[in-house]
Design a protein around this nucleic acid. Structure first.
Length: 586
RNA sequence: GCCCCGAUAGCUCAGCCGGAUAGAGCGAUCGCCUCCUAAGCGAUAGGUCGCAGGUUCGAAUCCUGCUCGGGGCACCA
């Protein structure tokens, strides 16, 4: 509809320009927005005000001239000049009513569009290190990324969802040695736990699984493992130096094969746990991309060589640096440490290069706000490869702060004392968790109140929306119980019986849905859908209280049922994009 | 010190690619179930859009500076 109106304005403008020989800008961006409030029509354009200056005429005069030249259109009832020079369009009742028919015809597909035109887009999200279970902070990235993927898909993109698994590097060694020490502990080897090790219960679990699988295969003695190592933090030493020495010793004692087995078992156990957790949360991936696979395939070395031959690497203090400051970064970055190890950033360069070379037209990285420092350096690396960095977009998601009523919950990850995503899901349920995570703009810090998320009242927006859906279902059940037949075609034929204000408002709200989806996709803001659904549900509840649907007048009844069934369909479609269920009874 | 994000009603937040009286929920006050689920609805009260400049016919929205809050600035991941 917007396009049609824009087209009418374009024609009117052309006609005006021809007859008045106005000097107008080459390209005119014609904006239309939904009229808000009463009396402003269904759509409004500020075209005349924007052209007033270049045309050298008062906006209202221009607006009047444009309105006079507007071609007749079957869906446009009339257009008026208002305020400082707005052109307000009033669409015909038939055009407004047509949305009901369209919703029923398109069903689950209503709201989808071809904005993306099938462009391939890769979206990477969560990508938490496989060194422990997901916590509530990761949950927001998961819910946001999952919803964004759905929204982009609905807007016509070919979406590929990916989780980048950091299964190479130092943290993985620390994980493995943490498991090893628990394993040895269970076998009676008393070894003080490293200050820098991973302490959670899940480490014990992995160690026990390892025992069940391999018995004594990894048995070494405490003294073999720790004699002669530098002091750990509790003994006044440096925890980083200690743990590195410890992992080196473990690898030497066990040999490459057995050591690798422990690494693999540990990483795989956690990765699997994360995958299961996310799947239960309704978040699925097309691929789990292993960092180690990049390293082992030589992709990291190749990427560095390409940078080297491009002259953007240099040596300093025994390390190899990428001159990212040439491409807008704050400081240069190490890609290979003095000990020869490539850095995490080096892998990241290779990974993003790989994304671009797999032929995605667009890449979206969803990061936690604490990773904002990566944007400049990753962009810099792509620029160094001569890639169009505009094709990579970062979405930073701010933290979620948990509350229980007014009490702020500690988010400390120290000593394994944190709320896991799984615990959250079990406490408040997947629906409330998914909805709460995405109902705010991603840039906003999120106050996540557990009590509110669990409350079954109008305070809780999830239930409020779901309840609207359930209520429609309930009406239809009532109808069946009373032996009333409902004929959709009759209803569609009688839509013009829906003359109540509430009904007109709802028709207008329903008509907005496709615009909301497109807007959410363009701006990468799933929360717009959450806001919209609240609106729609609110309109429905008001309507429900004001009017009875199951009236004796069969035509009116059928029309109302066609309307509320359309509402149900749209709520279902919207909730589905957010990963929230639409229950039939509550 | 530098970088990113935020600041709108008592609380939590929409609105922010400039536009016509700044919206919603909660909380407060007063109402609505012999009637399709009251997990609901209606009404009232409540705002210097952090502060100061600037751009503009027009600024909550764009620009600059400042204040306050969160986060980030490693040969960590």
């Amino acid at each position: 509809m917007k396009e049609e109106l824009a087209d009418l304005l374009r024609q009117a403008l052309q006609s005006l320009a021809d007859s008045e020989s106005l000097s107008l800008p080459e390209t005119v961006d014609i904006q239309l927005e939904r009229g808000r409030g009463s009396g402003h029509g269904d759509y409004a354009s500020n075209l005349a005000m924007r052209l007033a200056r270049p045309a050298g005429k008062p906006p209202r005069e221009l607006a009047t001239a444009l309105v006079e030249r507007l071609p007749v259109h079957p869906h446009v009832d009339r257009a008026e000049v208002a305020g400082p020079g707005f052109i307000n369009f009033f669409i015909t009742r038939d055009a407004a009513n047509a949305v009901i028919e369209r919703i029923h015809r398109e069903g689950n597909a209503f709201g989808r569009c071809q904005h993306g035109a099938g462009e391939r887009v890769i979206i990477e999200f969560v990508s938490a290190n496989p060194t422990g279970p997901l916590h509530v902070g990761h949950g927001r990235g998961a819910a946001f990324g999952g919803a964004l993927g759905n929204v982009l898909e609905a807007a016509g993109y070919d979406v590929h969802r990916e989780y980048y698994v950091n299964d190479a590097g130092r943290q993985i060694h620390i994980l493995a040695v943490s498991v090893l020490i628990r394993y040895l502990g269970h076998r009676g080897e008393a070894i003080e736990f490293p200050a820098n090790g991973y302490r959670g219960d899940y480490i014990h679990t992995i160690a026990r699984d390892l025992e069940a699988e391999a018995g004594e295969r990894y048995r070494i003695t405490a003294s073999e493992l720790t004699d002669g190592l530098p002091a750990d933090a509790h003994a006044g030493g440096d925890k980083e130096r200690y743990i590195d020495a410890l992992t080196d010793r473990a690898r030497t004692l066990l040999g490459a094969t057995r050591y690798r087995e422990i690494v693999d078992a540990s990483v795989e156990a956690i990765r699997h746990d994360i995958e299961e957790d996310l799947a239960a949360f309704g978040v699925r991936y097309d691929r789990w991309f292993s960092e180690r696979s990049l390293v082992e395939a030589g992709a990291v070395e190749r990427a560095l060589q390409r940078l080297e031959s491009g002259g953007t690497l240099y040596e300093k203090d025994g390390a190899q640096w990428f001159r990212s400051t040439d491409y807008g970064d704050d400081k240069d970055r190490v890609v290979r440490r003095a000990d020869g190890q490539t850095t995490y950033f080096a892998s990241d360069i290779a990974y993003h290069l790989d994304k671009f070379e797999r032929g995605f037209g667009r890449a979206v990285d969803v990061f936690g706000a604490d990773h904002h420092g990566y944007m400049a350096r990753v962009r810099a690396s792509l620029a160094a490869f001569d890639h169009d960095t505009d094709r990579l977009e970062f979405r930073l998601v701010q933290f979620a702060i948990l509350y229980r009523g007014h009490e702020r919950l500690s988010m400390s990850t120290r000593s394994g004392e944190f709320v896991t995503l799984r615990e959250l899901r079990e406490e408040v349920g997947n629906d409330a968790a998914r909805f709460f995570y995405v109902m705010r703009r991603p840039e906003q810090h999120l106050d996540f109140d557990l009590e509110l998320a669990k409350s079954q009242s109008s305070d809780n927006p999830v239930y409020y929306i779901q309840y609207a859906h359930a209520r429609v279902c309930s009406v239809l059940r009532q109808m069946a119980e009373r032996g009333i037949d409902h004929d959709l075609d009759t209803g569609l034929g009688a839509i013009d019986r829906l003359t109540e204000d509430h009904e007109q408002t709802l028709l207008q709200t329903l008509g907005r849905y496709p615009e909301v989806i497109e807007g959410a996709a363009i701006s990468h803001e799933p929360h717009q859908i959450a806001q919209y659904l609240r609106d729609l549900a609110g309109g429905f509840h008001t309507y429900y209280n004001a009017h009875t649907f199951l009236v004796d007048d069969a035509a009116l009844r059928d029309a109302r049922l066609a309307l509320v069934r359309a509402i149900r369909q749209v709520i279902r479609n919207g909730l589905d994009l957010l990963g929230v269920s639409a229950p039939e009874r509550m």
